[in-house]
Design a protein around this nucleic acid. Structure first.
Lengths: 228, 228
DNA sequence: ACCTGAACACCGTTCAAGT
DNA sequence: ACCTGAACACCGTTCAAGT
C-alpha cells in the first residue's frame, strides 16, 4: 500500500517513439524481418497494438526509424585529418558493418528513396562531400557519388540475401563452403565462369571483397582526372 | 449441345506453370508488388487459390519464376562479335531495361541469393565470362564480376524505390523535378553537396547515368592491368 | 491427376471506449 | 493526452472433398 504511492513499481515506463524503435530493432535483430509485427511489438512493450499508432504513423515509418537508428553510428565519424579516399572507405565500411550486424537493414535500405528525411540521403551526402574533396570535376560528381552509393546498396542487399539463404545454425565459412561446393558442381557448359571461380569463394572475406569493390570504383573515378 | 462435344467452349484452358507465371507477371505489372495475391491470381485464372499450389510450391517460387521470365530476354543476347566491354554494357543495359519496364523486379532481384537456379547466378555467369574476356587476372575476376553485379542490383533497387515514391500519375521528368526542388531547399549546412548537385538531377537520364557507373567500374577493373 | 473453396492462423490498421 | 483491445479487411497456406 505504501509502495503504490511514491514508487510506481516502475513496471510501466510510458511509451515513447524511442522505446518503440528500440524494441523494433530488438525484434528485427532476434526474430528477423518477418518477426516485426505490431502484435509482437505490443507484447514486448506490454500494451495493445493500437497504442503504437499514437507514436508512429505506420509500419513504414517504423522501419525507416529502425534503419536510421542502426545506420547513424556509421555517419557519426569525423572526416577531418584523413584523405578523401580514406574517408570514403571508412564510411562505406561503417555502413557495411552496420548492415552485417543487422542483416535486415540491407533488405530495406536499398528500397528507400533518396528523398526527404531518408537515411539514404544522409549517406549520399557524406559520400558526395568526399567525392568533391577528391576534386572530381563538377559535372561528374553526381555520377560518382551515385555509383558508390548504388554499389554499397547492392552489396547490402546481397549480404541480406545470403544471411537469409544460410541455415540459421551455420556460420559464414560453412555457408560459403556450401555455396562453393554447389558452384563447383554446376554444368561446365552452362556455368564455366562460376564453376571456375568457386574456389575463390571459399577463401574470401566478405568485408575485404566489399572494400575491393569500393577501390575499383574509386580507381575508376580518379583515373580520368588527369585527362580533363 | 453440339458445340459442347468437340469444341470445349475454350473457356477453360488447363492450368499450368506457364499460365500462372504469366498471370503473375501481368498482375505485378498492373497492380504492383502488393497486388500479387493468391486470391487475385486465382480470380484471374478462374480458379480457387488452392489450385495454384499444385503447380507452384509457394509465393517465393512464384516470384522467382516471374523475375526469371522478365530477365530472360536480357540474357538471350549473343556476345560474339563484340568487345567484352561492349558485351558487358549491353548485358547491363538489358537488365536495366527489364527492371525499368518491370519496376517490381528491382525490389526482389537484389534479395535473391546467388545460389541454385537463381536468375542472379545466370547474370553473374554472363558478367563473369566477359570479365574473363577482358583478361582480368584470375585472382581478381571474382571481385570484378561481383562489383559489377552489386552495382547493377543497387541501381535496380534504387530505381524501384523511385518508381514507388513517385505519384502514380507523374512521369519521370516530373518526379525528378520534384526531387530536385526538394534537394535544392535542403539546409546548406547539413546537405551542402546534395543541394549543389540538385541541378544535375534535373537534366539527368537514368539510363545514361547507369551506364556511366558501369563505365566507372570497367575503368577501375582495367586500370590496374598494365601494372600487373 | 488435378481442381475447389472453406478454414486456419495469421497480418496492418482503425476506432470506440476508457483513463 | 495517451492507452486499450476488439473488430475490420485482408493475407499465405492447407486440406478434405470432389472430378
Amino acid at each position: 500500500m505504501a509502495s503504490s504511492k511514491r514508487r510506481p513499481e516502475r513496471r510501466q515506463e510510458p511509451l515513447s517513439r524511442e522505446r518503440i524503435v528500440a524494441a523494433a530493432v530488438g525484434l528485427l535483430d532476434t526474430v528477423g524481418e518477418s518477426g516485426l509485427t505490431f502484435r509482437a511489438l505490443a507484447e514486448r512493450l506490454a500494451t495493445g497494438p493500437g497504442a503504437i499508432y499514437w507514436h508512429v504513423t505506420g509500419k513504414t515509418e517504423l522501419l525507416v526509424a529502425a534503419i536510421d537508428a542502426v545506420i547513424a553510428p556509421a555517419l557519426a565519424g569525423d572526416d577531418t585529418g584523413t584523405t578523401p579516399r580514406e574517408a570514403i572507405r571508412a564510411l562505406a565500411l561503417g555502413v557495411f558493418d552496420a548492415i552485417d550486424a543487422h542483416p535486415w537493414v540491407g533488405t530495406t535500405l536499398a528500397q528507400l528513396p533518396r528523398t526527404g528525411q531518408s537515411p539514404m540521403l544522409r549517406v549520399f551526402e557524406r559520400v558526395g562531400r568526399q567525392v568533391r574533396a577528391l576534386h572530381v570535376p563538377e559535372a561528374a560528381q553526381f555520377t560518382a557519388a551515385s555509383a558508390l552509393l548504388s554499389y554499397i546498396l547492392g552489396v547490402a542487399g546481397q549480404n541480406a540475401a545470403n544471411t537469409r539463404a544460410a541455415r540459421p545454425d551455420t556460420d559464414r565459412t560453412e555457408f560459403l563452403d556450401a555455396v562453393a561446393s554447389a558452384w563447383g558442381e554446376l554444368d561446365p557448359d552452362e556455368y564455366p565462369f562460376t564453376r571456375d571461380v568457386a574456389g575463390q569463394l571459399r577463401e574470401h572475406d566478405d568485408r575485404a571483397e566489399f572494400l575491393a569493390g569500393i577501390d575499383l570504383i574509386l580507381t575508376g573515378i580518379t583515373a580520368g582526372r588527369t585527362r580533363s
